[in-house]
Design a protein around this nucleic acid. Structure first.
Lengths: 139, 139
DNA sequence: CTTGACTCTGTAGTAAAGTATAGGGTTTAA
DNA sequence: TTAAACCCTATACTTTACTACAGAGTCAAG
């Protein structure tokens, strides 16, 4: 019930988010997560939101976003003096970027599916040269 | 008509693929593209397929694949002594990975779309805190 | 009340993926 | 026929994103 009252140490956050302790301090230095409050002895005290934020950073990296781009994504909400119009423009650009990524992934997927469909049994691979397509028609 | 007879130099390939000359030599050393034939004076001679291959590498990187993973994707066709069964298994794993990426991107996209929809006019941003969702429900 | 597992700051080292430079040969267009 | 613009190898440097100490303080279990 009262889990907000029990702040997480950096080690617990690291375990929950699946990263190392040093990585969290690194993200803090880089401005990807804000400096958390400290205990009397100087220990960082995190809330559960920090875990979600770090997991998001981790996943976004796996999707090909750089830390710089991820910071921009995260800043699509904290900025205190940006207009909604500005936010909308930035969000639109990100959506377009995401759409392009999805397109490329779908293309890769369909080529792999064709490969699987054509490549049956246990004949040698030279009989399955469908992947030519994967390397073509990119825009 | 006879464009196969005119091989491309490394500089032309680099320009066509949108990378630097050094990057191509680096990919060759890393085994991502095979060593091309050489001219009498030792110049590398590329075909247009090389351009497609390098473009594919470039795009796959932007989708969050490491060079090691990209190599695996490209090897889904050249190997001369793999069975189709093996290829099918490897392709299946790649498709699953791609599906997970697409899922995450769709999730990010829908959150950004909700942000744009909610955030109208020119009110300050604190009125648009929809992005909370972006940081959650990953899995 | 101590010992082992934390935490802190600060700095240094690493892996991946390029990018640049040195020192040399080649092609081509004026 | 020469100078700009290429290419070659080999090696060194850079950037991004961590990862690993060193040296010191803190906390919690037995």
């Amino acid at each position: 019930m009262s889990r907000i009252l029990e702040p997480l140490t950096i080690g617990k956050v690291a375990r929950l988010a699946g990263v190392g302790v040093e990585t969290i301090r690194f993200y803090e230095r880089e401005g990807l997560i804000e400096e958390p409050p400290r205990s009397a002895s100087g220990y960082r005290q995190y809330s559960k939101e920090a875990v979600a934020r770090i997991r998001f950073i981790k996943r976004a990296k796996e999707l090909g976003f750089s830390l710089k781009e991820i910071k921009e994504l995260l800043e699509l909400r904290i900025d205190p003096e940006t207009t909604c119009e500005d936010i909308r423009n930035r969000a639109k650009a990100k959506i377009e970027d995401i759409d392009r990524k999805i397109d490329s992934l779908l293309k890769m997927k369909s080529v792999l599916e064709r490969l699987m469909a054509t490549c049956r049994g246990r004949e040698p691979v030279s009989e399955c040269p469908i992947l030519e397509a994967l390397e073509d028609r990119e825009k």
